[in-house]
Design a binder for these strands. Structure first.
Length: 484
DNA sequence: ATGTCC
Protein backbone atom coordinates (compact mmCIF):
# COMPACT_ATOMS: atom_id res chain seq x y z
CA UNK A 1 0.00 0.00 0.00
CA UNK A 2 1.31 3.44 -0.90
CA UNK A 3 0.06 6.48 1.02
CA UNK A 4 1.34 9.92 0.16
CA UNK A 5 4.47 8.43 -1.46
CA UNK A 6 5.21 6.24 1.59
CA UNK A 7 5.29 2.47 1.13
CA UNK A 8 3.55 0.49 3.88
CA UNK A 9 3.64 -3.24 4.50
CA UNK A 10 0.56 -4.84 6.07
CA UNK A 11 1.54 -6.91 9.12
CA UNK A 12 -1.94 -7.72 10.48
CA UNK A 13 -5.47 -6.52 9.72
CA UNK A 14 -4.89 -3.25 11.62
CA UNK A 15 -1.09 -3.03 11.77
CA UNK A 16 1.13 -1.47 9.11
CA UNK A 17 4.89 -1.17 8.89
CA UNK A 18 7.10 1.48 7.27
CA UNK A 19 10.36 -0.32 6.44
CA UNK A 20 13.60 1.04 7.86
CA UNK A 21 15.10 3.19 5.10
CA UNK A 22 17.73 5.94 4.79
CA UNK A 23 18.64 7.25 8.25
CA UNK A 24 15.87 5.43 10.13
CA UNK A 25 17.26 3.48 13.10
CA UNK A 26 14.11 1.34 13.45
CA UNK A 27 11.03 0.64 11.30
CA UNK A 28 7.75 2.54 11.83
CA UNK A 29 4.56 0.77 12.90
CA UNK A 30 1.02 2.19 12.78
CA UNK A 31 -2.05 0.57 14.33
CA UNK A 32 -4.87 1.57 12.00
CA UNK A 33 -7.53 0.12 9.71
CA UNK A 34 -7.05 0.19 5.93
CA UNK A 35 -10.06 2.49 5.66
CA UNK A 36 -8.72 5.04 8.17
CA UNK A 37 -5.27 4.85 6.64
CA UNK A 38 -6.63 5.75 3.21
CA UNK A 39 -9.21 8.31 4.32
CA UNK A 40 -7.30 10.22 6.98
CA UNK A 41 -3.62 10.03 6.12
CA UNK A 42 -3.53 10.58 2.36
CA UNK A 43 -3.02 14.34 2.69
CA UNK A 44 -1.28 14.36 6.03
CA UNK A 45 2.36 14.71 7.08
CA UNK A 46 1.87 12.35 10.03
CA UNK A 47 3.35 9.23 8.38
CA UNK A 48 6.44 11.22 7.42
CA UNK A 49 6.66 12.22 11.08
CA UNK A 50 6.58 8.55 12.14
CA UNK A 51 9.60 8.06 9.85
CA UNK A 52 11.33 11.18 11.20
CA UNK A 53 10.98 9.98 14.81
CA UNK A 54 12.67 6.71 13.79
CA UNK A 55 15.89 8.75 13.27
CA UNK A 56 16.21 9.65 16.97
CA UNK A 57 19.37 8.37 18.69
CA UNK A 58 18.71 5.43 21.00
CA UNK A 59 15.18 4.65 19.76
CA UNK A 60 14.19 1.05 20.52
CA UNK A 61 12.11 -1.45 18.48
CA UNK A 62 9.76 0.80 16.49
CA UNK A 63 8.57 4.35 15.96
CA UNK A 64 4.91 3.66 16.82
CA UNK A 65 1.58 5.37 16.12
CA UNK A 66 -1.96 4.72 17.33
CA UNK A 67 -5.11 4.92 15.13
CA UNK A 68 -5.85 8.51 16.21
CA UNK A 69 -2.57 9.60 14.56
CA UNK A 70 -2.43 13.08 13.04
CA UNK A 71 0.07 15.82 12.29
CA UNK A 72 1.75 17.39 15.33
CA UNK A 73 4.82 19.42 16.33
CA UNK A 74 7.78 17.21 15.35
CA UNK A 75 6.25 13.92 16.51
CA UNK A 76 2.80 12.92 15.27
CA UNK A 77 -0.02 13.11 17.81
CA UNK A 78 -0.81 9.48 18.61
CA UNK A 79 2.92 8.71 18.54
CA UNK A 80 4.87 6.48 20.94
CA UNK A 81 8.67 6.22 21.01
CA UNK A 82 10.96 4.63 23.60
CA UNK A 83 14.62 5.64 23.83
CA UNK A 84 17.25 3.85 25.88
CA UNK A 85 19.02 5.59 28.74
CA UNK A 86 22.58 5.00 27.42
CA UNK A 87 22.68 6.82 24.10
CA UNK A 88 19.00 7.74 23.87
CA UNK A 89 17.51 11.23 23.68
CA UNK A 90 14.54 13.03 25.17
CA UNK A 91 12.54 15.41 22.97
CA UNK A 92 9.85 17.97 23.95
CA UNK A 93 8.25 17.30 20.55
CA UNK A 94 7.54 13.78 21.83
CA UNK A 95 5.52 15.16 24.73
CA UNK A 96 3.81 18.18 23.19
CA UNK A 97 3.03 21.69 24.36
CA UNK A 98 0.36 20.57 26.82
CA UNK A 99 2.54 18.58 29.22
CA UNK A 100 0.48 15.93 31.06
CA UNK A 101 -2.69 16.68 29.24
CA UNK A 102 -4.89 13.87 30.49
CA UNK A 103 -8.28 12.54 31.49
CA UNK A 104 -9.87 11.55 34.75
CA UNK A 105 -13.07 9.64 35.33
CA UNK A 106 -15.07 9.78 38.57
CA UNK A 107 -18.23 7.93 39.58
CA UNK A 108 -21.39 8.94 41.37
CA UNK A 109 -24.09 6.67 42.79
CA UNK A 110 -26.73 8.61 40.82
CA UNK A 111 -28.65 7.54 37.71
CA UNK A 112 -29.73 9.71 34.78
CA UNK A 113 -33.39 9.60 35.96
CA UNK A 114 -32.31 11.02 39.31
CA UNK A 115 -30.32 13.93 37.88
CA UNK A 116 -32.49 14.73 34.84
CA UNK A 117 -34.82 17.23 36.62
CA UNK A 118 -31.81 19.26 37.77
CA UNK A 119 -29.44 18.65 34.87
CA UNK A 120 -29.49 22.24 33.60
CA UNK A 121 -28.86 23.79 37.06
CA UNK A 122 -26.05 21.22 37.54
CA UNK A 123 -24.29 22.25 34.32
CA UNK A 124 -24.78 25.94 35.22
CA UNK A 125 -23.30 25.31 38.68
CA UNK A 126 -20.30 23.46 37.19
CA UNK A 127 -19.77 26.32 34.72
CA UNK A 128 -19.92 28.85 37.58
CA UNK A 129 -17.55 26.96 39.86
CA UNK A 130 -14.89 25.95 37.32
CA UNK A 131 -13.14 28.71 35.36
CA UNK A 132 -12.97 27.80 31.66
CA UNK A 133 -11.43 29.25 28.51
CA UNK A 134 -8.13 30.71 27.37
CA UNK A 135 -6.58 32.67 30.24
CA UNK A 136 -9.09 31.31 32.75
CA UNK A 137 -7.97 31.88 36.33
CA UNK A 138 -8.99 32.22 39.94
CA UNK A 139 -10.52 28.84 40.89
CA UNK A 140 -8.58 29.09 44.13
CA UNK A 141 -6.65 32.01 45.60
CA UNK A 142 -3.55 33.08 43.69
CA UNK A 143 -0.79 30.72 44.77
CA UNK A 144 2.20 31.86 46.78
CA UNK A 145 5.61 30.86 45.52
CA UNK A 146 5.95 28.27 48.29
CA UNK A 147 2.59 26.70 47.36
CA UNK A 148 3.60 26.65 43.67
CA UNK A 149 6.85 24.94 44.63
CA UNK A 150 4.90 22.31 46.55
CA UNK A 151 2.50 21.75 43.64
CA UNK A 152 5.34 21.38 41.12
CA UNK A 153 7.17 18.92 43.37
CA UNK A 154 4.22 17.04 44.92
CA UNK A 155 1.47 17.23 42.29
CA UNK A 156 -2.04 16.44 43.47
CA UNK A 157 -0.74 15.55 46.95
CA UNK A 158 -0.78 19.31 47.51
CA UNK A 159 -4.51 19.45 46.79
CA UNK A 160 -5.21 16.64 49.24
CA UNK A 161 -3.10 18.34 51.93
CA UNK A 162 -5.22 21.46 51.35
CA UNK A 163 -8.58 19.69 51.71
CA UNK A 164 -9.23 19.63 47.97
CA UNK A 165 -9.27 15.85 47.72
CA UNK A 166 -8.94 12.55 49.55
CA UNK A 167 -6.24 9.93 50.03
CA UNK A 168 -8.20 7.66 47.70
CA UNK A 169 -7.91 10.28 44.93
CA UNK A 170 -4.11 9.95 45.15
CA UNK A 171 -4.25 6.18 45.05
CA UNK A 172 -6.24 6.22 41.80
CA UNK A 173 -4.08 8.75 39.95
CA UNK A 174 -1.33 7.57 37.57
CA UNK A 175 2.01 7.78 39.46
CA UNK A 176 -0.07 8.65 42.56
CA UNK A 177 -0.20 12.19 41.18
CA UNK A 178 3.52 12.88 41.75
CA UNK A 179 6.61 12.42 39.60
CA UNK A 180 9.23 12.50 42.35
CA UNK A 181 12.21 13.81 40.39
CA UNK A 182 10.39 17.01 39.42
CA UNK A 183 12.46 20.12 40.08
CA UNK A 184 10.95 23.52 40.74
CA UNK A 185 14.29 25.31 40.26
CA UNK A 186 14.56 24.49 36.52
CA UNK A 187 11.12 26.00 35.74
CA UNK A 188 11.33 29.60 34.47
CA UNK A 189 9.96 32.56 36.37
CA UNK A 190 7.62 33.24 33.45
CA UNK A 191 6.18 29.72 33.55
CA UNK A 192 5.56 30.13 37.29
CA UNK A 193 3.83 33.47 36.74
CA UNK A 194 1.52 31.91 34.14
CA UNK A 195 0.63 29.06 36.48
CA UNK A 196 0.15 31.08 39.68
CA UNK A 197 -3.60 31.63 39.22
CA UNK A 198 -4.42 28.66 36.95
CA UNK A 199 -4.73 25.75 39.39
CA UNK A 200 -8.27 24.41 39.01
CA UNK A 201 -8.99 25.89 35.59
CA UNK A 202 -10.19 24.00 32.52
CA UNK A 203 -8.71 25.86 29.57
CA UNK A 204 -9.95 25.84 25.99
CA UNK A 205 -10.06 23.88 22.73
CA UNK A 206 -10.80 20.18 23.17
CA UNK A 207 -10.60 20.42 26.97
CA UNK A 208 -13.84 19.84 28.82
CA UNK A 209 -15.71 18.61 31.84
CA UNK A 210 -18.46 16.19 30.92
CA UNK A 211 -21.33 14.57 32.78
CA UNK A 212 -21.87 11.12 31.22
CA UNK A 213 -24.09 8.11 31.67
CA UNK A 214 -22.69 4.56 31.43
CA UNK A 215 -24.55 3.37 28.34
CA UNK A 216 -23.07 -0.03 27.72
CA UNK A 217 -20.92 -2.54 29.57
CA UNK A 218 -18.75 -4.93 27.53
CA UNK A 219 -16.91 -6.71 30.36
CA UNK A 220 -19.09 -6.83 33.48
CA UNK A 221 -16.36 -8.24 35.75
CA UNK A 222 -13.84 -5.55 34.83
CA UNK A 223 -16.49 -2.81 34.98
CA UNK A 224 -17.41 -3.96 38.48
CA UNK A 225 -13.78 -3.70 39.62
CA UNK A 226 -13.65 -0.17 38.15
CA UNK A 227 -16.88 0.66 40.07
CA UNK A 228 -19.03 1.15 36.95
CA UNK A 229 -22.63 0.03 36.32
CA UNK A 230 -25.10 0.57 33.49
CA UNK A 231 -27.18 3.75 33.83
CA UNK A 232 -24.70 5.34 36.27
CA UNK A 233 -23.86 9.04 36.16
CA UNK A 234 -20.09 9.66 35.93
CA UNK A 235 -17.90 12.65 35.11
CA UNK A 236 -14.89 13.03 32.82
CA UNK A 237 -12.33 15.83 33.11
CA UNK A 238 -9.97 16.49 30.19
CA UNK A 239 -7.33 19.18 30.69
CA UNK A 240 -3.60 19.68 31.21
CA UNK A 241 -0.95 21.99 32.59
CA UNK A 242 -2.36 25.21 31.06
CA UNK A 243 -0.01 28.17 30.48
CA UNK A 244 2.63 26.76 32.84
CA UNK A 245 3.21 23.60 30.80
CA UNK A 246 3.07 25.53 27.53
CA UNK A 247 5.80 27.85 28.80
CA UNK A 248 7.99 24.94 30.00
CA UNK A 249 7.74 23.37 26.53
CA UNK A 250 8.50 26.67 24.81
CA UNK A 251 11.48 27.40 27.11
CA UNK A 252 13.06 23.97 26.64
CA UNK A 253 12.52 23.74 22.87
CA UNK A 254 15.04 26.58 22.67
CA UNK A 255 17.45 24.84 25.05
CA UNK A 256 17.21 21.50 23.24
CA UNK A 257 17.53 23.05 19.79
CA UNK A 258 20.94 24.34 20.86
CA UNK A 259 21.74 20.98 22.46
CA UNK A 260 20.91 19.14 19.20
CA UNK A 261 23.61 21.20 17.47
CA UNK A 262 26.05 20.81 20.37
CA UNK A 263 25.78 17.01 20.34
CA UNK A 264 25.98 16.92 16.52
CA UNK A 265 22.63 15.20 15.88
CA UNK A 266 21.57 15.06 12.23
CA UNK A 267 17.78 15.23 12.43
CA UNK A 268 15.31 15.26 9.52
CA UNK A 269 13.20 17.98 11.22
CA UNK A 270 14.23 20.85 13.52
CA UNK A 271 11.07 20.19 15.52
CA UNK A 272 12.65 16.95 16.78
CA UNK A 273 15.03 19.05 18.92
CA UNK A 274 16.38 16.76 21.64
CA UNK A 275 19.27 16.05 23.98
CA UNK A 276 20.77 12.87 25.44
CA UNK A 277 18.69 11.87 28.46
CA UNK A 278 21.90 11.71 30.46
CA UNK A 279 23.03 15.22 29.45
CA UNK A 280 22.57 18.30 31.62
CA UNK A 281 20.07 19.72 29.07
CA UNK A 282 18.12 16.45 28.89
CA UNK A 283 17.96 16.12 32.67
CA UNK A 284 16.83 19.75 33.06
CA UNK A 285 14.00 19.28 30.55
CA UNK A 286 12.98 15.99 32.19
CA UNK A 287 12.83 17.62 35.64
CA UNK A 288 10.92 20.66 34.34
CA UNK A 289 8.51 18.48 32.35
CA UNK A 290 7.87 16.39 35.47
CA UNK A 291 7.14 19.58 37.43
CA UNK A 292 4.62 20.65 34.76
CA UNK A 293 3.11 17.14 34.86
CA UNK A 294 2.65 17.50 38.62
CA UNK A 295 0.93 20.87 38.04
CA UNK A 296 -1.50 19.17 35.64
CA UNK A 297 -2.39 16.40 38.10
CA UNK A 298 -3.05 18.98 40.77
CA UNK A 299 -5.13 20.94 38.25
CA UNK A 300 -7.38 17.98 37.47
CA UNK A 301 -7.62 17.19 41.20
CA UNK A 302 -8.79 20.71 42.09
CA UNK A 303 -11.30 20.69 39.20
CA UNK A 304 -12.67 17.35 40.37
CA UNK A 305 -13.09 18.72 43.89
CA UNK A 306 -15.03 21.72 42.50
CA UNK A 307 -17.17 19.31 40.45
CA UNK A 308 -17.97 17.19 43.52
CA UNK A 309 -18.93 20.36 45.39
CA UNK A 310 -21.21 21.35 42.47
CA UNK A 311 -23.01 17.99 42.63
CA UNK A 312 -23.47 18.22 46.42
CA UNK A 313 -24.85 21.77 46.18
CA UNK A 314 -27.18 21.05 43.24
CA UNK A 315 -28.70 17.89 44.69
CA UNK A 316 -28.44 19.02 48.34
CA UNK A 317 -26.78 15.73 49.27
CA UNK A 318 -24.39 14.52 51.93
CA UNK A 319 -21.03 13.42 50.59
CA UNK A 320 -21.53 9.91 51.99
CA UNK A 321 -24.61 9.49 49.73
CA UNK A 322 -23.05 10.74 46.49
CA UNK A 323 -20.74 7.75 45.87
CA UNK A 324 -18.15 10.06 44.38
CA UNK A 325 -14.95 8.08 43.64
CA UNK A 326 -12.08 8.63 41.26
CA UNK A 327 -11.86 5.62 38.91
CA UNK A 328 -8.53 6.71 37.46
CA UNK A 329 -6.53 9.64 36.12
CA UNK A 330 -4.36 9.01 33.05
CA UNK A 331 -1.96 11.28 31.22
CA UNK A 332 -1.61 11.14 27.45
CA UNK A 333 1.16 13.72 26.81
CA UNK A 334 4.29 12.73 28.72
CA UNK A 335 7.72 11.09 28.71
CA UNK A 336 8.23 8.46 31.43
CA UNK A 337 11.20 6.39 32.54
CA UNK A 338 9.83 2.83 32.60
CA UNK A 339 11.08 -0.76 32.50
CA UNK A 340 10.29 -2.68 29.30
CA UNK A 341 11.41 -5.91 27.74
CA UNK A 342 13.64 -5.29 24.71
CA UNK A 343 14.59 -8.57 23.07
CA UNK A 344 15.66 -10.80 25.93
CA UNK A 345 16.46 -8.13 28.47
CA UNK A 346 14.47 -5.79 30.69
CA UNK A 347 15.71 -2.27 30.07
CA UNK A 348 14.92 1.15 31.46
CA UNK A 349 13.70 3.35 28.62
CA UNK A 350 12.19 6.80 28.24
CA UNK A 351 8.72 6.25 26.76
CA UNK A 352 7.44 9.33 24.93
CA UNK A 353 3.64 9.21 24.72
CA UNK A 354 2.25 12.10 22.71
CA UNK A 355 -1.48 11.67 22.39
CA UNK A 356 -1.21 8.11 23.63
CA UNK A 357 -2.47 6.61 26.90
CA UNK A 358 -0.55 4.24 29.15
CA UNK A 359 -2.27 0.83 29.12
CA UNK A 360 -0.54 -1.41 31.69
CA UNK A 361 -1.62 -5.05 32.12
CA UNK A 362 -2.95 -7.08 35.03
CA UNK A 363 -0.23 -7.63 37.64
CA UNK A 364 1.68 -4.44 36.84
CA UNK A 365 3.46 -2.90 39.83
CA UNK A 366 2.58 0.53 38.48
CA UNK A 367 -1.22 0.27 38.86
CA UNK A 368 -3.44 0.50 41.97
CA UNK A 369 -3.76 -2.66 44.06
CA UNK A 370 -7.51 -2.73 43.39
CA UNK A 371 -6.93 -3.07 39.62
CA UNK A 372 -4.10 -5.60 39.66
CA UNK A 373 -6.41 -8.50 38.82
CA UNK A 374 -7.80 -6.83 35.69
CA UNK A 375 -5.36 -4.18 34.42
CA UNK A 376 -5.22 -0.40 34.17
CA UNK A 377 -8.28 1.65 33.20
CA UNK A 378 -7.62 3.35 29.84
CA UNK A 379 -9.77 6.46 29.30
CA UNK A 380 -10.57 7.39 25.70
CA UNK A 381 -12.82 10.43 25.26
CA UNK A 382 -14.73 10.89 22.00
CA UNK A 383 -16.63 13.97 20.85
CA UNK A 384 -19.26 15.80 22.89
CA UNK A 385 -22.23 14.50 20.90
CA UNK A 386 -21.58 10.78 20.69
CA UNK A 387 -19.67 8.73 23.25
CA UNK A 388 -16.42 7.95 25.08
CA UNK A 389 -14.85 4.64 26.07
CA UNK A 390 -13.31 3.03 29.09
CA UNK A 391 -10.90 0.23 28.13
CA UNK A 392 -8.37 -1.91 29.99
CA UNK A 393 -4.64 -2.53 29.46
CA UNK A 394 -3.20 -5.92 28.40
CA UNK A 395 0.01 -7.94 28.33
CA UNK A 396 0.05 -7.54 24.56
CA UNK A 397 0.30 -3.77 24.96
CA UNK A 398 3.46 -4.37 27.04
CA UNK A 399 4.87 -6.63 24.33
CA UNK A 400 4.07 -4.44 21.34
CA UNK A 401 3.43 -0.76 22.23
CA UNK A 402 5.46 -0.16 25.41
CA UNK A 403 2.15 -0.44 27.28
CA UNK A 404 0.30 2.22 25.27
CA UNK A 405 -3.00 2.73 23.48
CA UNK A 406 -4.96 5.48 21.71
CA UNK A 407 -6.15 8.65 23.46
CA UNK A 408 -9.19 9.94 21.57
CA UNK A 409 -11.10 10.30 18.34
CA UNK A 410 -8.75 12.59 16.42
CA UNK A 411 -10.03 15.40 14.23
CA UNK A 412 -11.91 14.79 11.04
CA UNK A 413 -12.24 18.47 10.02
CA UNK A 414 -9.75 21.28 10.56
CA UNK A 415 -10.88 23.99 12.99
CA UNK A 416 -11.44 26.25 9.99
CA UNK A 417 -13.56 23.71 8.11
CA UNK A 418 -15.58 22.98 11.25
CA UNK A 419 -16.34 26.70 11.61
CA UNK A 420 -17.59 26.78 8.01
CA UNK A 421 -19.67 23.67 8.58
CA UNK A 422 -21.24 25.20 11.72
CA UNK A 423 -22.19 28.49 10.07
CA UNK A 424 -25.92 29.27 10.29
CA UNK A 425 -26.58 26.30 12.55
CA UNK A 426 -27.64 26.28 16.19
CA UNK A 427 -25.32 23.65 17.65
CA UNK A 428 -26.55 24.25 21.22
CA UNK A 429 -30.10 23.26 20.19
CA UNK A 430 -28.83 20.39 18.05
CA UNK A 431 -26.92 19.00 21.03
CA UNK A 432 -29.94 19.53 23.28
CA UNK A 433 -32.04 17.41 20.91
CA UNK A 434 -29.42 14.69 21.29
CA UNK A 435 -29.78 14.98 25.08
CA UNK A 436 -26.61 17.01 25.73
CA UNK A 437 -26.71 20.30 27.65
CA UNK A 438 -23.71 22.48 26.82
CA UNK A 439 -22.34 25.66 28.38
CA UNK A 440 -19.26 27.25 26.85
CA UNK A 441 -17.39 30.55 26.92
CA UNK A 442 -17.97 31.22 23.24
CA UNK A 443 -19.75 29.82 20.19
CA UNK A 444 -16.39 29.53 18.35
CA UNK A 445 -15.23 26.69 20.61
CA UNK A 446 -18.57 24.89 20.28
CA UNK A 447 -18.31 25.17 16.48
CA UNK A 448 -14.70 24.00 16.32
CA UNK A 449 -15.47 21.13 18.66
CA UNK A 450 -18.77 20.03 17.09
CA UNK A 451 -19.27 16.25 16.89
CA UNK A 452 -18.82 16.20 13.09
CA UNK A 453 -15.34 17.75 13.52
CA UNK A 454 -14.19 14.43 15.02
CA UNK A 455 -13.75 10.93 13.72
CA UNK A 456 -15.97 8.26 15.26
CA UNK A 457 -14.03 7.26 18.38
CA UNK A 458 -15.61 3.79 18.13
CA UNK A 459 -13.50 3.13 14.99
CA UNK A 460 -10.34 4.20 16.82
CA UNK A 461 -11.06 2.13 19.93
CA UNK A 462 -12.04 -0.91 17.80
CA UNK A 463 -8.59 -0.98 16.16
CA UNK A 464 -6.91 -1.29 19.55
CA UNK A 465 -9.54 -3.81 20.68
CA UNK A 466 -9.24 -6.04 17.59
CA UNK A 467 -5.44 -6.03 17.83
CA UNK A 468 -5.68 -6.99 21.51
CA UNK A 469 -3.80 -3.92 22.79
CA UNK A 470 -6.70 -2.68 24.94
CA UNK A 471 -10.12 -4.27 25.47
CA UNK A 472 -13.37 -2.31 25.64
CA UNK A 473 -14.97 -2.25 29.11
CA UNK A 474 -17.69 0.43 28.95
CA UNK A 475 -19.20 3.10 26.71
CA UNK A 476 -20.18 6.50 28.14
CA UNK A 477 -22.80 8.82 26.68
CA UNK A 478 -22.55 12.58 27.35
CA UNK A 479 -25.55 14.41 28.87
CA UNK A 480 -23.87 17.66 29.88
CA UNK A 481 -20.62 19.45 29.08
CA UNK A 482 -18.76 22.63 29.97
CA UNK A 483 -16.03 23.97 27.70
CA UNK A 484 -13.74 26.95 27.22
C1' DA B 1 -2.97 23.11 23.28
C1' DT B 2 -1.45 28.44 24.28
C1' DG B 3 -2.56 35.60 28.43
C1' DT B 4 -3.73 32.16 19.77
C1' DC B 5 3.00 37.73 19.10
C1' DC B 6 7.81 39.54 24.13
Amino acid sequence: MNINGIELKQIRENLWEIPQINGMRVPGRIYISREMLESTLSEDEALKQVMNVAHLPGIEKYSLAMPDIHWGYGFPIGGVAATNLDEGVISPGGVGYDINCGVRLATTSLTLEEIQPKLEPLITKLFQNIPTGVGASGAIKKLSKSDLKKILEKGSVWAVENNLGTQSDIQFTEESGTLKNADFSVVSERALERGADQAGTLGSGNHFLEVDVVEEIYEPKVAEVFGLFKGQVVIQIHTGSRGLGYQVCDDYLKVLLKASEKYGFKLPDKQLACAPIKSQEGQAYLAAMQAAANFAWNNRQVIMHLAKKSFLETFDMKESDLGFHLVYDVCHNIAKIEKHQIGNVIKEVCVHRKGATRAFPPGSEMIPEKYKSVGQPVLIPGDMGRYSYVAVGTEKAMEETFGSSCHGAGRNLSRHKAMKEAKGRDLVSELKKKGVIIQAKGYKTIAEEMPAAYKDVADVVDVMHKEGITRKVAKLKPVGVIKG
